[in-house]
């Protein structure tokens, strides 16, 4: 660097290290850090996305706690708990899949990804059963809604939010299964190694995020005001 503060030009534009990274990055490390930061920033947008729904839920729940409490009694706690455990389990297998990729264990990646997808599909199956059950009980908000409680108007609001929140969550699960399918194919082809595992790491972050949303949905929808 020259003393008058002028920039000096160093060679570096075209010369890349041997490690695999896209041409506009200087190193695989820079690429990995960028991907990870990008994923986290994306998850921030996801959190704010669900945030609007959480806000609506908080506002209406605090306005009509009795109606919401009565409505939440129509949800099946056993199924909710089961699904919570399933999803936590899928987070564990997902974390182990990422770990296997970090260690370059191709077969383990495949096994753990398949396990994660089975658990995810189980969750969705149970959710579909619950939705079906609600439809049979005429608890779908809208014109066919029937609720024999003190305040059917606001019980309907509970189910509005229930379907909006769990529906959006389920949609994220479905997208997640799609992403994991891609990861499975990449993993089976041995694309991941200790030097390159960005995609599966970012998919893992997404999957855990969806798990966290459920960790909050479960008590909010199923558990509050459940006693008595």
């Amino acid at each position: 660097m020259s003393p008058d503060g002028h920039a000096t030009a160093v060679h570096g534009g075209g010369a890349h290290a041997a490690a695999a990274h896209a041409g506009h990055f200087d190193s695989a490390e820079q690429q990995r850090e960028s991907a990870s930061l990008g994923m986290w920033v994306f998850l921030v947008t996801e959190l704010m996305f669900f945030g609007g729904l959480f806000l609506a839920y908080i506002v209406y729940r605090s306005a009509w706690p009795e109606a919401f409490g009565a409505a939440s009694h129509h949800l099946d706690v056993r199924l909710g708990t089961f699904n919570t455990i399933v999803l936590i389990g899928s987070s564990l297998t997902m974390a182990l899949a990422v770990r296997s990729a970090q260690l370059g264990r191709r077969q383990a990646v495949v096994i753990f990804l398949v396990l994660t997808m089975i658990l995810g599909a189980t969750f969705l199956g149970v959710k579909a059963y619950e939705y079906h059950h609600k439809a049979v009980e005429h608890l779908l908000p809208g014109h066919g809604f029937q609720f024999e409680g003190a305040d059917p108007r606001h019980a309907s609001m509970f189910f509005c939010l229930y379907f909006a929140m769990t529906g959006l969550h389920a949609l994220h699960m479905i997208v997640g299964l799609g992403i994991l399918t891609v990861m499975l194919i990449m993993g089976a082809r041995g694309r991941f190694s200790a030097a390159y595992y960005n995609p599966i790491e970012c998919s893992g972050l997404y999957w855990h995020f969806v798990d966290i949303i459920w960790i909050f949905l479960f008590p909010l929808l199923y558990l509050l005001e459940r006693h008595g």
Partner: peptide
């Protein structure tokens, strides 16, 4: 159980704890 005013606190407190664990270790 009826924990009085603590129903929501316990439910959400545990949820926050669980989320923290997932964020710190799984993520």
């Amino acid at each position: 159980r009826d924990l009085g005013p603590f129903n929501n606190v316990v439910a959400l407190g545990i949820a926050v704890l669980k989320a923290t664990l997932v964020v710190l270790f799984f993520m």
